[in-house]
Nucleic acid binder design. Structure first.
Lengths: 361, 361
DNA sequence: ATGAAAGCGCTAACAA
DNA sequence: TTGTTAGCGCTTTCAT
């Protein structure tokens, strides 16, 4: 190192990163020779290779993947925008997307926008210039995100807006809610409560019986649960049939259920926004000494593997996440190849939940 | 659509994707005008913009992100190679890496190589041409992976090989094992069994008392557990103190523990390879009617949030995954900027587990 | 074993 | 409002 200090290394690190020409100049060779050294190609004296590699290291040179990609031909690169890798639902979905994309030789760039107060729009904004297409849980930002993609394909998940010009995969919450509530009613459950997390879809403007914002799935349940007692007047029959948790976490759901049990000890069935929150409900019930499912049934939503590890095992409205991932990537594949045209009915898919009965209901 | 059928669209879709020149030619404008249309730039008649956009859609044109990146300046792009997004440990880690990378304006390309019989080396092979650096759980492939990176930074996790030329983050299993076994012995546990999964680190060649391959962490525990009964002869004192599960899953661990309880009903403490497998152990013990932790203690390894949702809550050797992610990205940052030199002691970090006592031990 | 030239597809700067 | 010119940094020929 010291012996070569006389070479013209810039005293202050240049703002611009070193290029192949900088290395070539420093080594006194042509850029092809640098290419040969960097890529371990034949036709270069090993002493030259060593010298070039050493210089490259000193100059902190990294070949530009853009220049290289430009000349060598690129892979498809897909952006995946998800709200929170810490919620087991999303990695389960991501896993399926990555698997399907990998099978096609694509790359997946993941942006978890759950940290630092970022929004789905931020994520797409960052992703858009660098990827060929985006798959994401974007909520109401989907419309604006589509603009950022300037014509490239976008698949919005859990999105059912009729006016949306991109591709979408929606979930049939009305049907899922009806299956769940029907099952619990047939069991003779009298006091069914849905634990909502209005953060995701509250922008839809649907309100619960008390006039508070509700998630999309929350409104599906609210509609069913409010109709429960036909004997009463115009006032909603079950004003407390929907409870709002403070966050999309087991801890928040646990607190909500604790408060609920305090207020309405006769609750005999709890349906949660998702499996993670159902796990919190399970904890609250266990702590309150309730026997699940005898005293109170618990139903989750998602069907993630976590449910099978809980005690009792979680009954849930399961989504086939591999199917969701496969559908998203297939949609993209069709859009990218031109086999599917945007604006046709083909780009709006609906996937159904299935009632998975395990131990908790 | 039909009215413009006479334009010279290729009858058969060309093998090569359309370029900006194809669109420009089709629209009878210059490429600059196409750029303006595609990127929503000003200085273009909106009728022209419409026409160009329409043509672009027909030709299925997508701007090359490489050409664009080349001219606009690139973000740093980091590859993240992980074995299985379905194991909650990895998304927890990935989440932290993505958060740290995002804060620096970097992109993260995730490759989950757990599907389709792919190896860590496959993952790096795919990633290498497209990223500036790689972080990964590569096991024994780390050495070969480094070659594929041709000089670009690589951070290998859970890797402690002395001869490794890249950066690495190792975990101090000897210390962790000693903390765990010491704690259980002080509790008076007599018959402590470690449930190994030799898939990951079996290549190190360490053998258990029965001569079978062991994971790195498995050997740390085997060493301690074999020394347990100093009264016996040269033959290993506790030949069954290490059990091997058939997979890195709760289900595999559950089966292993079921067999163990059959064979050694006096087992009063189980330590698992990781939290997921500990969850399986918990299920097996509950099913066998054992009271955890009274009859039998269970200790996991990882410290993922899942543990707190189990019944009883899982005691574990926790790793601060946010610290691990932060360290990996900091290492990369230093390497990329030249602030840290490869080959110095600075690139080999060690992170310690901490004994987290919750309900199960 | 090495070098020179050409061009990948795009956008910024400048003309018209 | 539109077109022209000049690269971005690299790898591929093809020469030497």
């Amino acid at each position: 190192m010291g012996s070569k200090a006389s070479r013209s290394l810039p005293a202050v690190r240049a703002a611009k990163p070193a290029t192949i020409l900088d290395v070539a100049a420093a080594a006194g060779v042509s850029r092809q020779t640098v290419t040969r050294a960097m890529n371990g190609m034949p036709g270069i004296k090993s002493s030259t290779r060593e010298r070039v590699l050493e210089l490259a290291r000193e100059l902190n040179y990294t070949p530009s993947r853009f220049a290289r990609g430009l000349v060598q031909g690129s892979h498809v690169s897909v952006g995946l925008a998800i709200p929170d890798l810490g919620n087991p639902y999303y990695p389960a979905f991501a896993s399926s997307v990555v698997e399907q994309a990998t099978a096609r030789g694509w790359h997946v760039v993941v942006d978890d926008f759950g940290h630092g107060g970022r929004s789905a729009l931020d994520a797409v904004e960052r992703l858009a210039p660098q990827v060929d297409a985006v798959i994401g849980y974007l909520g109401a930002d989907a419309d604006r995100a589509l603009v950022l993609m300037s014509g490239r394909p976008l698949v919005a998940l859990d999105f059912a807006d009729e006016g949306f010009a991109g591709a979408s995969i929606a979930f049939d919450y009305a049907r899922a809610a009806s299956a769940a509530v029907g099952y619990l009613r047939r069991q003779g459950r009298q006091r069914i409560v849905y634990i909502d997390w209005p953060g995701a879809g509250a922008s839809t403007g649907t309100l619960d019986p008390l006039g508070r914002g509700l998630s999309v799935r929350g409104s599906a349940f609210a509609a069913l649960l409010s109709d429960a007692s036909p004997g009463t007047s115009t006032q909603s029959a079950s004003p407390h049939s929907v409870v709002r948790a403070a966050g999309e976490s087991a801890a928040a759901a646990k607190e909500a259920v604790e408060a609920l049990l305090e207020r309405s000890p006769d609750t005999d069935a709890v349906i949660a926004f998702n499996d993670l929150m159902a796990a919190g409900a399970l904890k609250a019930l266990a702590q309150a000494g309730r026997n699940v499912p005898v005293d109170c049934a618990v139903l989750g939503m998602d069907g993630i593997p976590l449910g099978e590890l809980l005690t009792p095992e979680l009954s849930t409205l399961g989504l086939d996440l591999r199917e969701v991932g496969r559908t998203a990537v297939e949609l993209l594949d069709g859009l990218l190849s031109g086999a599917i045209q945007p604006g046709t009915p083909e780009v709006r898919r609906v996937i159904r939940h299935e009632l998975l009965l395990r131990g908790s209901a």
